[in-house]
Design a binder for these strands. Structure first.
Lengths: 151, 151
DNA sequence: ACATTACTCTACAAAATATATAGAATTAAT
DNA sequence: ATTAATTCTATATATTTTGTAGAGTAATGT
């Protein structure tokens, strides 16, 4: 699940990616422009900074900016930093695997196997999507998936 | 995210799918066999029943059984009944769409567009997977996705 | 130097959600 | 009738999410 923290973080990243190269932005501006509680955003941006996604400068004239080009920041990377593993359940995670304590047979567990497929599908999308692509995304209905049943 | 409720429910469905046709099982048995708190499972199975996935019979000789063949029960259907929409965020749901209250432009929101892709990918997997397939799944490493980066 | 700015850190608090538990009510079989 | 089993209502506990408050730190400009 994408929490508000994750959502706010992504919006802040878009905000920063849309600045001119070299420019930075202060938290207050990002917060007001995106309807995000300032103090909450403080913590979020700090976390992104501690994960090497943003860099910050203190004091007057300071602010936050991307730590690397938007083309080198993966959306999956940002979401992991804020919301944790992409997998729907930890036993299906490749970056943070942990067996369920109630499961007597993780190897043959169908829940785990199916959720591993889901995790891989999510990762295929989010780890291959850069912040640059994300920011430039056009307002077009995303490609219709091959076989969708329930809409 | 798959909660314990969702996980327990899926395990119970597997349990019931593995019975001989026409057979049913009582909650206590499903609970002890799968390390699930009995009272919690009561509520879960009831919810699956109210969603037309299970049927129940009260009293001695009673119990739960599938309401339809395992080949006609979709995993996505079960997860929705227990954990809600598959989409990582409601504004990306097709079955339970709701705009974010803090979002001034849902149409052009990149978070929403990307999460819609994720939702579609999840749905492609879970709405096309039947309980029958799920139950018969072999203990084989799931197919390697085309381009996986972070493992 | 000094005031101002803005990030950083620690602690806490409120709200929402997830995870149960208890016990009585209902229905069916023997 | 008694027992078995689901169903209903209510409640309790734990965890996570979503914030808020306020002091601390570093940089800047004057």
């Amino acid at each position: 699940m994408l929490t508000k923290k994750g959502k706010y973080g992504l919006k802040a990243l878009v905000h920063l990616a849309e600045l001119n190269p070299g420019e930075s932005s202060i938290v207050t501006d990002i917060a007001t422009r995106n309807n995000i509680p300032k103090k909450f955003l403080d913590a979020i941006l700090l976390e992104l900074r501690n994960n090497g996604i943003l860099k910050s400068k203190k004091g007057a004239g300071g602010g936050y900016s991307l730590a690397k080009p938007a083309s080198e920041i993966r959306i999956g990377e940002a979401i992991r930093a804020l919301d944790g593993p992409l997998a729907p359940i930890l036993c299906a995670s490749r970056t943070a695997y942990q067996p369920c304590d109630d499961c007597n047979d993780p190897e043959g567990c169908q829940v785990r196997l199916s959720m591993t497929k889901v995790r891989d599908a999510i990762s295929d999308i989010l780890d291959n999507m850069t912040l640059e692509q994300f920011t430039r995304a056009e307002r077009v209905t995303s490609g219709v998936p091959s076989i969708t049943l329930l809409g």
